[in-house]
Amino acid sequence: MGDFWSTTILNYCIALGVVLGGSFLGGIGAFFGNKPPMDAMLNLSEQLKIWALVAALGGTFDTIRTFEVHILGGELSQVFQQLIFILSAFSGAHFGTLLIRWLIQGDLGG
């Protein structure tokens, strides 16, 4: 069970890091490109959410294949674990977006 929790935390942190890192570095790029960095960071944080999920899960095809194999095999506990991994990655990506919004606008509204 320790491997399950470490993978869950790892998925969360990877997704969070993709959104934060991509947004901050994109903001630096926008600054050097003479564009408004704060606007670029807000837009990037929203656009990077799905890619953060994909990066954290190691590719969506593996996750979908795991669902297929375990549902057809009747191993519902494994399906539940995969759902937790997906929710963990989504939570990390969403929290990263909220952090960027809060840093720029001072607003955590949804």
Rank of each mutant, 00 (worst) to 15 (best):
E46Y: 12
W102L: 11
M1W: 07
V79N: 03
G27T: 01
L42Q: 08
I104H: 04
L10G: 10
K49C: 05
F80P: 01
G27Q: 02
I100K: 03
A89G: 11
I84C: 11
L87G: 15
I104M: 10
L48K: 02
F90D: 02
R101P: 00
N43G: 15
G21E: 09
H94P: 00
G106Q: 14
I14K: 02
S88N: 07
F61I: 09
D3F: 14
L25K: 07
A93F: 04
I28T: 12
V69G: 00
G106C: 04
W102Y: 15
M41I: 01
L25S: 15
F90H: 04
D107E: 13
H94K: 14
G73N: 06
I64C: 05
V54D: 00
L98P: 00
V79D: 03
D107V: 06
G33W: 01
I100Y: 10
I50A: 12
L72R: 12
R65E: 06
S23C: 14
F4C: 01
W51I: 15
S77G: 11
M41K: 07
G110H: 14
S45N: 06
L83F: 09
M1Q: 07
S6C: 07
I50P: 00
F67L: 14
Q78M: 12
L53K: 04
W5Q: 12
G110E: 14
N34C: 04
G92I: 04
F95G: 00
V69Y: 11
F80Y: 10
W102V: 03
L42C: 05
V19S: 09
F24P: 04
H70V: 02
S45I: 00
G2L: 15
Q47R: 10
F24W: 11
I9W: 07
G106Y: 12
G29K: 03
A56V: 02
I28V: 15
G92K: 09
G58I: 09
T60Y: 09
V69K: 11
G74T: 08
T66C: 04
